[in-house]
Amino acid sequence: MAVLRRNLTAYGFLCGALFCFAVFAWYPMIREFVLSFQETNLISPPTWVGLDNFGYAVNDPAFGGAWLATLEFTVLALVFGYVVPFAVALVLNELRHARAYLRFVVYLPVMLPPIVAVLLFRWFFDPGPGLFNQILDVLHLPGLAWLDSPTTALFSLVIVSTWMNMGTATLIYLAALQNIPSELYEAAELDGAGLWKRVRHVTIPQTRLILLLLLMLQIVATMQVFIEPYMLTGGGPEGSTVTVAYLMFQYAFTYQNYGAAGALGMMLMIVLLVFAAFQLRLTREDTR
């Protein structure tokens, strides 16, 4: 009887989780799939238009630029948002004092609401009294129009995204580093391996699966970037920060073209599914 009661409790929690996934994840995806083949204003009955919504999105002059901006953002975010947390985790792992305090400091930006972080960096990027230009002025360097120039706007968004999200990745890396047997490092030191060789031949191989997993999660997350361009640049200047997710928002809530928004969302989902399948295949082969 106790076993049955315990199983019923477990199935109860499982049903609750499945219900939440069904309502808030699976149903919206199915609804988006159906919507991508329809023309509707969400009031009158929808009409089927086949692939017309996909054709509208592909022929939109902003389509190519949105994908290019998304790919550029993803590459830059990987350079900083993927490498920097790993480097910070390596430093924290070597510390013997104040480790808990520094972990809290690193994770603190994750606990801030995104709007707070965005407003903070809006002041940092201010071309007048902003913190970053004040620092450049102290260094006798010319100030930058961080969010007002097509050459620096996207990079500025990467800085914000990295600062907002690096805490979670850092703690995951740190947990993986602390599970590496100390004997491996001791053996490497006895063989005369320096810091870089220990990282290359011990740390990276021992954390390979975590690195691959976070690489996949990082790419999936950054290709859906929306908050930063929406709150900081509004897609400008000159459309240089219009990402795929931001263009979907414009289709749906600016042009009231929900079908095109659904079609563009399906394209993005297919791209991410193909990448995720490829990444999981590499991970599976790596574990054999």
Rank of each mutant, 00 (worst) to 15 (best):
T152S: 15
T162I: 05
S156L: 03
G130Y: 07
V158I: 11
L157R: 02
I172M: 09
V138G: 02
I159Y: 07
V138C: 05
V160P: 09
D148C: 00
T170R: 11
F155C: 00
L154G: 03
A145H: 12
S161G: 03
P142E: 03
L154R: 07
L144E: 05
W163F: 03
V138I: 13
L139S: 03
Y173W: 07
D137R: 14
G130W: 10
F155N: 05
L139D: 00
I159H: 05
M164G: 02
L141E: 12
T170L: 06
S156Q: 00
A153R: 04
N133F: 08
L136K: 11
I159T: 10
N165H: 08
D148G: 14
L144V: 10
A169G: 05
I159V: 10
S149V: 06
I172N: 02
F132S: 03
P142K: 07
Q134S: 11
L147M: 02
G143K: 11
L154H: 06
L147K: 08
Y173L: 00
L157T: 03
S161R: 05
Y173R: 06
N133W: 05
H140W: 12
D148I: 00
P142V: 01
Q134T: 13
P150C: 12
G143V: 13
M166C: 11
P142A: 09
W163N: 08
D137L: 11
L154Q: 12
M166T: 03
S161I: 02
L139A: 12
G143H: 09
D137T: 14
S156N: 02
L171V: 13
G130T: 09
A169L: 04
T162M: 05
M164N: 10
V138P: 00
T152F: 15
F155K: 06
S156T: 00
T152R: 11
L144N: 03
G167P: 10
V158G: 03
Q134I: 03
L147V: 08
M166N: 06
V160I: 07
L154Y: 06
V158C: 01
T170F: 07
Y173H: 01
T168Y: 12
P150G: 12
L141T: 04
Y173C: 09
T151S: 15
G130R: 06
Y173P: 08
L154T: 07
Q134C: 01
W163R: 01
L131V: 15
I159F: 10
W146H: 01
T170C: 07
V138T: 14
T152Y: 15
F155V: 08
T168C: 02
Q134F: 12
D137E: 15
I135A: 13
D148T: 10
H140Q: 14
G167F: 01
N133M: 03
D148S: 15
A153N: 09
L136F: 14
M166K: 07
W146D: 02
G130V: 06
D148F: 12
L144I: 13
V158M: 04
F132L: 14
L131M: 15
T152W: 14
M166F: 14
M164T: 13
S156F: 04
G143S: 11
L171M: 14
D137K: 14
S161Q: 12
V160G: 12
L171Y: 05
A153H: 05
F155S: 00
T162D: 01
